[in-house]
Amino acid sequence: TTYKLIANGKTLKGETTTEAVDAETAERVFKEYAKKNGVDGEWTYDDATKTFTVTE
């Protein structure tokens, strides 16, 4: 399944996707990606669109 991340960070803005077996796995991947890019904010997830959003 393809999951999408929308990053609304102070230093990183944009979108990326990952293939994962479930939302929990995708969330781990995206949180690691955000951490590597210095983004720390509020996370939301929309199951209907398989989209995570992080906003600083």
Results as ranks from 00 to 15, higher is better:
residue 1 T to Y: 14
residue 1 T to Q: 12
residue 2 T to N: 05
residue 2 T to E: 07
residue 3 Y to I: 01
residue 3 Y to R: 01
residue 3 Y to K: 01
residue 4 K to D: 02
residue 4 K to Q: 05
residue 5 L to D: 01
residue 5 L to N: 01
residue 5 L to W: 05
residue 6 I to H: 05
residue 6 I to G: 02
residue 6 I to E: 04
residue 7 A to Q: 07
residue 7 A to K: 04
residue 9 G to K: 04
residue 9 G to N: 06
residue 9 G to S: 13
residue 9 G to T: 15
residue 9 G to M: 12
residue 10 K to E: 09
residue 11 T to W: 13
residue 12 L to M: 12
residue 12 L to R: 05
residue 12 L to C: 14
residue 12 L to H: 14
residue 13 K to C: 15
residue 14 G to K: 11
residue 14 G to T: 14
residue 14 G to N: 09
residue 14 G to R: 13
residue 15 E to M: 12
residue 15 E to F: 11
residue 15 E to D: 06
residue 15 E to G: 07
residue 17 T to C: 12
residue 18 T to I: 15
residue 18 T to G: 03
residue 20 A to W: 02
residue 20 A to N: 03
residue 20 A to C: 09
residue 23 A to M: 13
residue 24 E to Q: 13
residue 24 E to M: 11
residue 24 E to G: 09
residue 24 E to W: 11
residue 25 T to H: 13
residue 25 T to W: 07
residue 26 A to M: 02
residue 26 A to N: 00
residue 26 A to G: 02
residue 26 A to I: 02
residue 27 E to A: 12
residue 27 E to H: 11
residue 27 E to M: 14
residue 27 E to D: 04
residue 28 R to E: 06
residue 29 V to F: 15
residue 29 V to I: 15
residue 30 F to K: 00
residue 32 E to R: 07
residue 32 E to C: 09
residue 33 Y to R: 03
residue 33 Y to D: 02
residue 33 Y to L: 08
residue 34 A to S: 04
residue 34 A to D: 00
residue 35 K to S: 10
residue 35 K to D: 06
residue 35 K to M: 13
residue 36 K to I: 11
residue 36 K to N: 12
residue 36 K to W: 08
residue 36 K to H: 09
residue 37 N to D: 03
residue 37 N to R: 10
residue 37 N to G: 05
residue 38 G to F: 06
residue 39 V to G: 03
residue 39 V to S: 03
residue 39 V to A: 04
residue 40 D to C: 12
residue 40 D to A: 11
residue 41 G to P: 02
residue 42 E to F: 14
residue 43 W to M: 04
residue 43 W to T: 01
residue 43 W to H: 00
residue 43 W to D: 00
residue 43 W to N: 00
residue 43 W to V: 02
residue 44 T to I: 08
residue 44 T to M: 09
residue 44 T to D: 08
residue 46 D to I: 04
residue 46 D to M: 04
residue 46 D to V: 05
residue 46 D to S: 06
residue 47 D to N: 09
residue 47 D to H: 10
residue 47 D to G: 08
residue 48 A to Q: 11
residue 48 A to Y: 09
residue 48 A to F: 11
residue 49 T to Y: 04
residue 51 T to I: 06
residue 51 T to E: 03
residue 53 T to H: 08
residue 53 T to Q: 06
residue 54 V to D: 00
residue 55 T to E: 06
residue 55 T to V: 09
residue 56 E to F: 09
residue 56 E to V: 10
residue 56 E to D: 10
residue 56 E to C: 07
